[in-house]
């Protein structure tokens, strides 16, 4: 096998691992091989390492997501009006307001300990606000920062469990879950429990479970922890696809580099800063 053929074989395998359909992977591999031959260059010189090139190709060919949300575009999916949280005399945050509509992304930013996760829990309904009003659509997806998956269950078992909550059949839940995993560049291996996945892959499972039911509002609490750079980019691509598909997305983050992509910014400050 020549180095060019070996490179093509690796590209084909990597594309399939990244969730590209085998026929499409073979077509892309042949195109790349032919293009390199036409240019009279070795494909590894022209495109770089096969695995890295596969990631770029896979991102380019992923099919656009069908409409996600059932909400009419522009409908309010979350409204916070003067929301505050206090523990005794300690004010965590005060007078937070936000109107998030279907097809919009909002980011909650702030330093550690300023109440970002608390605000998300208030939006979920697991923590009561000390003041203000929270209105929220009923069909939501939620990815917590920690503890959102069971280490003893495989991804397919998670999909069946969450699918049961949403009234989905077992097969549909698994096929939908696997399809969503591929959008994040991950193909789950059957029989492998979540505890044996890397931290980043567990977080991908966490994110996929939050969108399994095509919710109208997706609440995400720093869901990209443990992601590598490519997965992080895939994640933000996915957030924007949810937005384009008509869902409202609220992301808690402490990273500032992607804030120009969001429609609303909720900045929380530590109480001593206020």
């Amino acid at each position: 096998m020549t180095p060019a053929e070996e490179w093509s074989r690796r590209l084909d395998r990597s594309l399939i691992e990244l969730g590209v359909e085998p026929a499409e992977a073979r077509r892309l591999t042949e195109d790349s091989h032919e293009e390199a031959r036409g240019a009279g260059a070795d494909p590894s010189e022209l495109y770089g390492p096969a695995a890295a090139y596969a990631v770029r190709l896979a991102q380019a060919v992923r099919t656009p997501q069908p409409r996600l949300s059932t909400m009419p575009a522009g409908e309010v999916v979350l409204r916070l009006s003067g929301v505050s949280k206090r523990y005794g005399r300690h004010t965590v945050f005060d007078n937070v307001s936000l109107t998030l509509r279907a097809g919009e992304v909002a980011a909650v930013v702030g330093a550690n300990g300023c109440g970002k996760s608390t605000l998300l829990k208030i939006c979920c309904g697991t923590t009561a606000p000390s003041g203000g009003v929270v209105e929220r659509t009923a069909r939501i997806g939620y990815a917590p920062q920690q503890g959102g998956v069971s280490g003893f269950l495989t991804p397919a078992e998670h999909f069946r469990l969450f699918g049961a909550v949403h009234g989905m059949g077992r097969r549909k839940a698994v096929s939908t879950g696997n399809q969503l995993c591929r959008r994040l560049g991950w193909r789950p291996r059957s029989g492998l429990s979540a505890a044996r996945l890397s931290g980043g892959t567990q977080q991908k499972l966490n994110v996929v479970l939050s969108e399994l039911n095509s919710p109208d509002l997706i609440l995400l609490d720093e869901p990209y922890q443990g992601f590598d750079q490519d997965s992080y980019l895939d994640f933000w691509d996915q957030v924007l696809k949810w937005r384009d598909a008509g869902a409202g997305v609220l992301v808690v983050t402490h990273l500032l580099q992607d804030l120009e992509r969001v429609d609303h910014l909720v900045e929380l400050h530590r109480s001593e800063d206020q």
Binding site: G125, A138, I140, G141, P144, G147, S150, L161, H166
Partner: peptide
């Protein structure tokens, strides 16, 4: 105890 977080998440999304 170990299933509490997962169960709470399931309850949030409708279980």
């Amino acid at each position: 105890v170990s299933s509490r977080d997962l169960d709470q998440r399931l309850a949030i999304v409708g279980a």
